[in-house]
Amino acid sequence: MSHFAILLAGRMVPTPALRQRLAGARVIAADAGIRHAVALGLVPELWVGDFDSAPHVPDAFSGIERTTFGRDKDQTDGELAIEAAVARGASRLTLVGALGGPRSDHAFAHFILALRYAGTGLAVALHDGIEDAYPLDTEPLRADLLPGTQFSVLKFSDVEGLTIEGAKWPLNDVALPFTSILTQSNEAAGPITVRLAKGAAILLAQADSSVR
């Protein structure tokens, strides 16, 4: 698989586990996301955006290929970075710095983008050293969570056939409307498995989890 890390401008803690997840990945930075490259010791092959919030970066990054877009555009910098990764053959995406940050609408947009590109067949995950997130589909998703780890299933539509195994509050083949918050703030008893027959949802867990 061709693994691309997309550096976004949200919060990020450069934990050893996060560094390990990014080992060997090709890197594309979106505007201010370039600052995470410094903290993670990565060198992007491409830097995209309108650069309205780009920080000062070391001289070592001065030769990085840039693609500049006008500020008045109908795509976010993160979306443009993902599109660039897809154009370069990405089959797996790790969105770094997609969660938290000063603007909630940015985090919401990143969840939507994760669902969109996962729906095209790409393997997509979101990590920031604090939380891990994974779009759900009809294939069972196993997360090796430690006992006591808090997690939620965030719904973006009505869902059907939702099953959660290995949790303090398990579910078995339930249908829930979008407006239900039943799937918020669950707790892992150990590794969990989540299945979803229909709908759009994301598993959000405290870091650090692993999925298989």
Score class of each variant (00 low, 15 high):
A205N: 11
D132P: 10
L18A: 00
A175Q: 09
D144K: 08
D31K: 12
A29H: 05
S2K: 15
P147Y: 10
G148D: 00
F61Y: 15
G63D: 06
S157T: 01
R19H: 06
K168M: 08
F151D: 00
G121A: 09
L95W: 01
D137Q: 13
P170V: 01
E160V: 13
L42T: 15
F69V: 04
D77P: 14
P58C: 01
G166Y: 09
E131W: 08
G166P: 13
P191R: 06
T179H: 05
T138S: 02
N172A: 08
H3S: 04
E79F: 04
A85W: 02
G49Q: 06
G78F: 00
V48M: 06
G190Y: 07
E65A: 15
A39Y: 06
A201M: 10
L176Y: 12
V96C: 05
E165N: 11
T120G: 11
A60N: 02
L154A: 12
I202A: 08
T163W: 08
P102I: 09
E83K: 12
P170K: 01
Q150I: 11
Y117R: 11
Y134K: 14
L93H: 02
T179C: 01
A189I: 04
A37S: 11
T67E: 05
A143Q: 11
V174M: 00
E160G: 12
P55A: 08
H110G: 12
L196T: 09
T67W: 04
A54W: 09
T149Y: 04
D173L: 01
W47S: 09
A23P: 03
W47M: 11
I202W: 03
A23L: 11
T138R: 03
R19N: 01
V43E: 13
F108E: 10
T149G: 05
L18R: 06
R116D: 11
L95A: 02
T94D: 01
I112S: 06
S152Y: 03
T193A: 01
L122D: 03
S91H: 11
S210F: 07
A167E: 02
L203F: 04
D132A: 03
D74G: 02
R26A: 13
L203C: 10
G100I: 07
I64F: 03
D105A: 05
A205P: 14
A87S: 14
A197W: 03
W47L: 14
R116N: 06
F69K: 00
E187N: 06
A123G: 12
V43L: 07
N186H: 13
S185N: 05
A5T: 05
G129M: 10
I202N: 11
A109W: 01
Q150E: 00
L122V: 03
P147A: 13
E160S: 12
D59F: 09
Q20D: 14
R195N: 12
G119R: 00
A87C: 13
F61A: 00
R19Y: 06
